[in-house]
Write a protein that binds this DNA or RNA. Structure first.
Length: 299
DNA sequence: TATCGATTCGTCTAACGGCT
DNA sequence: AGCCGTTAGACGAATCGATA
């Protein structure tokens, strides 16, 4: 059984005419006959009924056609996968909390360093656990996460520390305070995102005991920042998640409890990952970029 | 490992038979 | 008679196995 036979069978099924199928396949009609006969021999059944000049599909032919289509689909998929191997493809996932500008900057820098014709796919994962699974399942080659879930098949590299920052809108009553204390937050509203993650649990632990602290949980970081900008309340987010254009609308404040919470950026990839040289180059590019960003912040 | 002959497979043309 | 599918025989390319 070969691909030509399957294609011929499906084409005959479509046009219900051997001669027409031969014409479309650019072979002679006996060739079509031979291909169908060989298939019938292989399957030990008739695929077409002949009623006078007309042909109809048998029950066996109907069943087989479903498998023939699947086989051709798989073949197509396999060819695509192999062609992607020839043209290297790097799929990278970022955990929520990296500004779009930062992602674009690192991609831009990487592309300028990468000499080869490389296809890049960038996705945003739900959280670090989701991205770790995606790396394990080979859905992506590289992930930038904030929580490390160790696994014998995975390698991790520390990229940088991404400080958590207290943020507030410019019109909020706390906007003019230089330092924030837990007493300042009595009766305030905190906008939260991804409260199930270990980082947020650590933040919540530090805020236990604050009276009348209200919490609003939102589904996206964009929503969170919009609400902060609209002075709905304060929030605590990784500093790398703030876009450059948002910095005029969002005040960041010193909040001592945040100094005790470490928030790392970690690169995660499979030990047996193909394109390992591109993965390492991307990691190094990200590290270099972060060193420069930190320089700017320190100065 | 390279070469050569035998075998197999796929396709072709031409001829044939069945059906409308 | 014309259309359509099947069969027979021929040919070339690919494959296999033996040998140097």
């Amino acid at each position: 059984m070969d691909i030509d036979q399957l294609k011929t069978f499906l084409l005959v099924k479509r046009v219900m005419n051997y001669s027409r199928a031969a014409e479309l396949l650019n072979v002679t009609q006996p060739t079509v006959t031979a291909r169908i006969q060989n298939l019938e021999k292989e399957l030990d059944c008739r695929l077409f009924h002949k009623v006078g000049r007309a042909i109809t599909l048998t029950k066996e032919g109907e069943i087989f056609s479903r498998y023939a289509e699947k086989i051709l689909d798989y073949m197509h998929e396999a060819k695509e996968s192999i062609s992607l191997l020839k043209k290297p493809h790097l799929k990278i996932g970022f955990a929520p909390g990296f500004s779009k500008q930062l992602v674009m900057d690192v991609v831009h820098l990487f592309e300028s360093k990468s000499k080869h014709d490389l296809m890049l796919t960038i996705i945003e994962g739900q959280d670090s656990a989701d991205l770790t699974n995606k790396v394990l399942n080979k859905d992506i080659n590289l992930a930038f996460v904030r929580t490390l879930f160790t696994h014998p098949e995975l390698s991790a590299r520390h990229i940088c520390d991404d400080k958590l920052v207290f943020i507030i809108g410019t019109g909020h009553r706390l906007a003019n305070k230089q330092k924030i204390t837990t007493e300042d937050l009595i009766g305030e509203t905190m906008i939260c995102f991804l409260r199930h993650t270990p980082i947020w649990r650590k933040v919540d632990e530090k805020l236990v005991g604050i009276e009348k602290l209200k919490r609003i949980e939102v589904g996206t970081l964009e929503m969170l920042k919009s609400m902060v900008i609209a002075n709905w309340g304060f929030s605590i987010i990784p500093s790398l998640s703030i876009e450059t254009h948002e910095k005029s609308k969002i005040h960041t404040k010193e909040f001592e409890i945040l100094d005790k919470i470490t928030n790392k950026v970690i690169a995660l990839f499979r030990n047996d990952s193909p394109n390992i040289e591109y993965i390492q180059l991307f990691i190094q590019t990200f590290k270099n970029l972060m060193e420069n960003v930190n320089d700017v912040v320190i100065s």
